[in-house]
């Protein structure tokens, strides 16, 4: 596949894209977020109250069945993409074509 092309472009099947956000639970300290907050203060952004750093993942699924995609992404988050001991997650789905 050429760079930049979407998976569905060549063959013409539907693709559902999941945008997944994984963040630390509020009770978990985030040393990286704290370091970024300090840097923002040093840059003069005095209003910055807090910074929490997380992860953003894009997962493309070969399906246009949104409820199936919902179920699968939910399972992926629970089993691998987030660690329920320290992290929470949310995601949205977009089906193309």
């Amino acid at each position: 596949m050429a760079n930049g092309a979407q998976i569905g472009d060549e063959i013409g099947f539907a693709v559902t894209k999941a945008r997944i956000y994984v963040t630390y639970k509020p009770t978990v300290l985030d040393p990286q977020g704290n370091a970024i907050q300090t840097a923002l203060h040093h840059l003069g952004f005095a209003d910055v109250e807090s910074v929490r750093m997380g992860k953003y993942l894009e997962v493309e699924l070969h399906t246009d069945d949104t409820s199936r995609a919902q179920e699968e992404v939910e399972a992926m988050c629970q089993q691998l993409l987030a660690n329920p001991v320290i992290e929470s997650y949310r995601f949205d789905l977009e089906t193309a074509q």
């Binding site: 978990v28 300290l29 040393p31 990286q32 370091a35 660690n83 001991v85 320290i86």
Partner: peptide, 11 residues
């Protein structure tokens, strides 16, 4: 084992 291991606090 219980718990988890995060980035060192001093980074």
């Amino acid at each position: 084992l219980p718990g988890a291991l995060l980035r060192n606090s001093a980074l």
